Each structure stands twice: as structure tokens, then as C-alpha cells.
Amino acid sequence: MAIEIRKLVAGDEQVLGNVAPGVFDEPVRPDLTRRFLATPTYRIFVALDGDLVVGMVTGFTHFHPDKDEEFFVNELGVDDEYRRRGLGEALLRAILAEAKAMGCPDAWLGTEQVNAPALALYRKVMTGRDTEEAMSIFTYELTSR
């Protein structure tokens, strides 16, 4: 059976009820799924093997008082058993095409410098106009403050 890449919309919540291990960092919560799919500027594409979600990519638009709307690719995950089949690339290309269709002039994402598979994927999808920059990420644990 071929893997299907599909954009989820409001009403597709049940699709995320059958997810392979390793696709998401944590168990999928129905309340957050409903909220996510109901948010107009959020997007999720999944890779489906039958009714099993074996990959996903999420993102959203954002803007700032001095910057036009742009698209942030938030997370991409593919189950270990389905890696090295082109699913990550297909998912990333799908969400970038969606961002372009939404009218965003730019999309961006980040990953750790030690994440060699992600770096290879993101570099593979780059065109001559795209750029790569090194950056630091700071995480603030707010529950301890």
C-alpha cells in the first residue's frame, strides 16, 4: 500500500487516534487536537499507511509589527520503521507548498546542530535562494518561577 500525505482539517481529529510510536514526542491529546485543527493559521500534514499515522509535520503563520506574516515549521516526525523512504521530504515539501499557498513569502525552521538526519533533509530541500544560519535556542522553564 502506498503512503498517503494528507492535510488534516477540522473534523479530522479521529485520524490522530492511531499514531505509530515516535511520530510525536508525547501522546496525542484529543482536546489539543481539536484546538489545533480549529486554529485557522495552524497546519498539519500526516503520512498515512492505511489508517496509521507514520509521520507528521506541523507549522503556523506569525507576524510582527515590523514584519510581514511568515510561516514557522514547528515540528516534523517520522516513525523509525518508516524513515529513509522520503516521507520527511514529502511532508516538508507539502507544508512549504501550503505556506506558499497561504501567501507567506518566507518559511523557516530550526533544529539542533547535532541532528544530522534533520540537517541533511532540510539541506536537501533547499534551493539556491534559501539560507542556513547557526543559532542558539534558549528554553525557560516557567513552572519553576
Rank of each mutant, 00 (worst) to 15 (best):
D80F: 00
P117F: 06
P65Q: 09
T131I: 09
M102N: 03
N74T: 06
G86Q: 06
T41Y: 14
D49I: 04
F72Q: 06
E13T: 05
V125C: 07
E81Q: 12
E81L: 08
M135D: 05
L76C: 00
G50R: 10
M102F: 06
N18L: 02
A38N: 15
E75K: 01
V57T: 12
E4P: 04
D31A: 11
L119E: 10
P21I: 07
L121G: 04
T33S: 07
A10Q: 15
T39W: 11
G77V: 01
A47Q: 11
M56E: 11
G77P: 08
M126T: 00
R85E: 11
D68T: 13
L87D: 08
D68G: 13
H64C: 04
L37G: 06
D130W: 11
G128E: 14
I3N: 07
V54A: 01
P40D: 14
L32G: 05
V9P: 00
I95R: 02
D12P: 01
G17R: 03
R84Q: 14
E89K: 15
T143M: 00
P21R: 09
R83V: 04
D66S: 10
T58R: 00
L16K: 03
Y82P: 00
R34L: 11
F72N: 08
I3M: 15
E75D: 13
E75V: 04
G110I: 00
E98A: 15
L121Q: 04
Y42D: 13
F36M: 03
D25V: 08
I95L: 03
V78H: 01
D68C: 11
E98C: 13
M56C: 07
R85T: 06
A10L: 14
I44P: 00
V114D: 15
G77I: 01
V28T: 11
P21D: 13
M1C: 04
A20G: 08
V125A: 12
E133V: 12
G86N: 09
K100P: 00
P65S: 09
Y82I: 05
E70D: 14
V9R: 12
R84M: 09
L119P: 07
M126R: 02
R34Y: 06
L91S: 03
E89G: 13
D49H: 08
F63N: 06
S144N: 10
I95D: 03
A97W: 03
L52S: 01
A101L: 09
W108G: 05
P105E: 13
L91K: 01
V46N: 06
D51Y: 10
